[in-house]
Design a protein around this nucleic acid. Structure first.
Length: 420
RNA sequence: GCCGGGGUGGGGUAGUGGAUAUCCUUGGGGACUGUGGAUCCCCGGACCCGGGUUCAAUUCCCGGACCCGGCCCCA
């Protein structure tokens, strides 16, 4: 009877907040012209082998099905979405798609991470320019703002091209390895970082210069000068600055250049971004970037792409901390009590009328005393109670009680409908 | 996969090598068979699982699963 590790049961009270997560993301996405898609929960394991190699496959729920196929419960959206994209030759660009499916990853559960979770994904395919990047990032900000998180998060933006340029000026033998070190900047001490960078082939002096540069806050006026002074950086910096200013035009939230945001070892080729709760030590609440090589890896034909993913777990944690996670119980607007079960048939008739006219209606089916039923009616939060007994049935009437004021009257059915 | 911490009804708790396991809350019923959330009364519901030590384990020891958190990783 126990749940599996890292999985959750979701009760009605918790569904309220969860539905807001879904509905806001959907509404804001549509307002940006994104259309909703969905894809299978089970995919061939090879879909992830191709993209990521065996290591990531080891962190999935994978098994051999009855037909001998190696299959994987989907751990992410991108491969499936890209497959959908390249399978269609009649799409006009740009393609803006979003989805909000469940994913599964076989990892140790901890704060902000479970083995089953929902993840919102929004991608834009086709054009590749700073405005496209800015629009996708603006959608991310728009959704967080829609959750009521304005002012409570910081959106960090960086450019892989800039980082590649910086790293290529050093003696490092592998850019991805250096990015991996930088990604751990905030949770690792200086000495370890230096050592790790030296292991990547840098001189110690180069390593400390690099660390100093990427640790500089964007508010520091000299930072921009230093970056522009790098040979070859001008077009990259101009693009990055234009992107950031467009995003800032769309939201009042904090948008910052943050050079230690590099998004790990993944497949990004251009701009990268991540959102964090302000003053929280939580993991990122959302992250994404430009990944122009992905389609070519999966299909042979390159399609420029930018997108991001946002898991429900971290968002929920942040909203709970801020006290904006809604757990109130939905209440029926009408609650029908009967003097005895003899009147249930008439109660069903009345309920049918109410429901067809758009009124959520509970019928008390317990057969208990009227007083007990009234207690339930009060507890349910219903605005009106309807009492049905011999008098009401014979006169095709109902007794309508206002649960807030306690006033009640006997009215005919049409009159009752008018009251709602 | 590794490391640290944790467990008593649905939720929150008290307590104990031995007796009917405490209290609050939630849930159900009644007082009140045609009328409310208050009050009063009654009822239901728990020592994570397995092994060991012991005359006796919810309590002590070991292991496991689970929960919380950290590492790795974060697609």
């Amino acid at each position: 009877m126990e749940k599996l590790r890292g999985f959750r049961d979701i009760y009605p009270e918790e569904m309220r907040g969860r539905e807001k997560i879904f509905s806001v993301a959907e509404r804001v996405s549509r307002s940006f012209g994104y259309e909703k898609i969905d894809f299978p929960s089970l995919e061939p394991m090879d879909l992830y082998r191709m993209k990521s190699g065996e290591e990531l496959v080891g962190q999935t729920f994978s098994f051999v099905d009855r037909g001998g196929r190696e299959v994987t419960l989907v751990p992410e959206a991108t491969p499936s979405v890209v497959r959908m994209l390249v399978s269609r030759k009649d799409l006009s660009w740009p393609v803006r798609w979003f989805s909000f499916p469940k994913f599964w990853r076989y990892e140790e559960p901890q704060s902000g991470r479970l083995r089953e979770f929902y993840q919102f994904n929004a991608d834009l395919f086709g054009p590749d320019n700073y405005a496209v990047d800015a629009e996708n990032i603006s959608l991310a900000a728009g959704i967080l703002d829609g959750y009521g998180l304005s002012g409570h998060y910081e959106l960090r933006i960086n450019s892989r091209e800039l980082m590649n340029l910086l790293i290529s000026k050093t003696g490092a033998s592998s850019i991805p390895a250096v990015l991996g070190v930088i990604d751990r900047l905030e949770k690792t001490d200086q000495e370890t970082l230096l050592g790790d960078l030296v292991k990547c082939g840098m001189q110690r002096k180069e390593a400390s210069n690099l660390l100093e540069l990427i640790s500089t806050p964007a508010s520091e006026p000299d930072l921009k000068k230093k970056l522009y002074a790098l040979p070859g950086s001008k077009p990259i910096m101009e693009k990055l600055e234009k992107t950031i200013s467009l995003v800032r035009a769309s939201t009042n939230s904090d948008i910052t250049l943050h050079m230690s945001t590099v998004r790990g070892l993944s497949y990004y080729t251009g701009i990268v971004f991540e959102a964090f709760g302000k003053g929280e030590k939580t993991r990122s609440i959302l992250g994404g970037g430009r990944y122009n090589e992905m389609a070519a890896m999966l299909s042979g034909s390159p399609i420029p792409a930018i997108g991001f993913g946002m898991g429900d777990v971290v968002i929920e944690g942040l909203m709970r901390k801020l006290g904006i996670w809604n757990e109130s119980r939905p209440s029926a607007k009408a609650y029908i009590c009967t003097a005895s079960t003899d009147y249930l048939e008439y109660a069903f008739t009345v309920a049918g009328l109410l429901r067809r006219s758009g009124m959520d209606t509970d019928i008390d089916l317990s057969g208990r005393s009227l007083s007990a039923q009234m207690k339930s009616a009060a507890k349910s939060g219903a605005k009106k109670a309807i009492i049905i007994g011999a008098r009401e049935k014979s006169g095709r009437k109902v007794t309508l009680r206002n649960m807030e004021t306690g006033e009640q009257q006997e009215v005919d059915l049409e009159g009752a409908l008018m009251q709602f």
